[in-house]
């Protein structure tokens, strides 16, 4: 499995990573090698493997609908790079 330059660009975009040309090449080669390696899973006969068969021992974990304290606004915004008027501030984004 050899990823093309376009493949790697697409994966980087999907991952929201800005990569340099060198990184694209380098990661492309490494990912290709890893994909070659993981291809060994195709040796396995997985036709019987049952998933989502409602047998998970651990299931139906829920909580009651009870209100718990929220953070103070100060604490909520404390770690943000930029805030304004009690809100997180980002660059303009096209109205959706």
């Amino acid at each position: 499995m050899s990823l093309t330059h376009t493949d790697v660009e697409k994966i980087a975009a999907l991952s929201r990573l800005s990569l340099t040309k060198d990184e694209l090449t380098h990661f492309g080669e490494q990912l290709s090698a890893i994909l070659d390696y993981v291809a060994m899973l195709s040796e396995l006969d997985l036709s019987d493997a049952a998933l989502e068969d409602q047998t998970a021992e651990h299931h139906n974990v829920t909580r009651d609908d009870i209100v718990l304290p929220s953070l103070s606004r100060e604490d909520a915004l404390f770690n943000a790079a930029e805030t304004r008027d009690g809100q997180f501030f980002i660059q303009s984004i096209l109205e959706e």
């Binding site: 790697v8 994966i11 980087a12 999907l14 991952s15 929201r16 990573l17 800005s18 990569l19 990184e23 990661f27 490494q30 990912l31 890893i34 994909l35 980002i90 660059q91 303009s92 984004i93």
Partner: peptide
Amino acid sequence: TGSDVIDTVERTRALFGPEVKRRIMLGSY
């Protein structure tokens, strides 16, 4: 901070080291 919102997110995430980037990309794929 980059040229726009998307660019900022992508540049911010470029702070991840190579191992993290590799795995994120493998996972996306």
